[in-house]
Nucleic acid binder design. Structure first.
Length: 270
DNA sequence: CGGACTCCCTGCCGGC
DNA sequence: TGCCGGCAGGGAGTCC
């Protein structure tokens, strides 16, 4: 499940194969993604040059002179560089052919999306209302503190709201709250200023660390059949309900918030 | 406006 | 061994 670090790792991995390159053609085998893929996508992209490949939250932006392709990997999506001549596997829904190579969109669950827009991309409705990037200087303890005042929503659900901050999915919300020693059901509005400062710094650190580690597997997933690294073994709480807390050894508690798994330590998180 | 809930989809896992 | 039901989950959309 691609979180922000996986999306950024993907961007960096495919950058040398896509940015500044001319698209030969686009093959859409399965248009039924989160939203139907534009039937004219091949017409829009063919013979045009990818001027820039950037990221906003978990969206990748392939910017052309006349428009922009917004790509979201959803739950199970991946983008990999493969030989254009190689035969597609099951769930390889879209090929963006670039010379001898192709950028292949693979997504078993089809929660991902590919949206063509001719608006300035940041004005597109999918991007216009997104919160700040967690790794930017706009994302601070001050920001968290002021945004959280009078909010009764549980801090974990609040952190996962992309209108508040982008890129903090279920895994990183769990991990960051554990590292910050904050109980996931605590009302956002009851966070202290010191907790907001801690939380902002920890979210940055956790995400940055994960991006750096993802970078070490770039070669694997760009060239061959590997997956963008996920480093499950380094997760302290996510997926570890019932197992011992790494700090105090007490069994970690697992609950559900808004139909999402939450794992935390009843002793270490208050 | 915020908050609660639904839906999209397939791979996987546990139970029998 | 094979089938089946349930679950996981990002995030837009809907409703109150």
């Amino acid at each position: 499940m691609p979180e922000l670090p996986e999306v950024e790792t993907t961007r960096q991995g495919i950058l040398p194969f896509t940015q500044g390159k001319r698209i030969s053609r686009v093959i859409v085998r399965e248009p039924r993604l989160r939203w139907p893929v534009d039937p004219d996508l091949n017409t829009h992209l063919s013979q045009n040059i990818v001027r820039q490949l950037s990221r906003r939250g978990k969206y990748l932006l392939f910017q052309f002179d006349h428009g922009c392709l917004l790509v979201h990997l959803g739950m199970s999506g991946s983008l990999r560089i493969e030989k254009a001549s190689s035969s597609p596997r099951k769930h390889d829904h879209v090929d963006i052919v670039i010379g001898q190579d192709c950028l292949r969109f693979h997504d078993p669950r089809r929660f991902g999306s590919m949206v063509w827009t001719e608006q300035p991309p940041l004005e597109h409705s999918l991007l216009a209302k997104l919160g700040p990037e967690p790794l930017s200087e706009d994302f601070t303890g001050d920001y968290l503190f002021s945004k959280s005042r009078k909010r009764s929503k549980a801090v974990k659900e609040w952190l996962m709201d992309s209108h508040m901050v982008v890129g903090v999915g279920n895994i990183y919300a769990n991990e960051s709250l554990f590292e910050a020693g904050i109980h996931p059901t605590k009302a956002a509005g009851r966070l202290s200023k010191a907790q907001c400062d801690d939380l902002a710094a920890i979210i940055k650190r956790v995400l940055q660390r994960s991006i750096t580690q993802g970078g070490t597997t770039l070669r694997d997933f760009v060239g061959g059949d590997g997956q963008p690294g996920y480093f499950k073994q380094q997760l302290l709480v996510y997926g570890r309900g019932g197992e011992a807390c790494t700090q105090c050894q007490k069994p970690l508690k697992e609950i559900r918030q808004n139909n999402r798994a939450t794992v935390y330590c009843t002793r270490c998180q208050r």
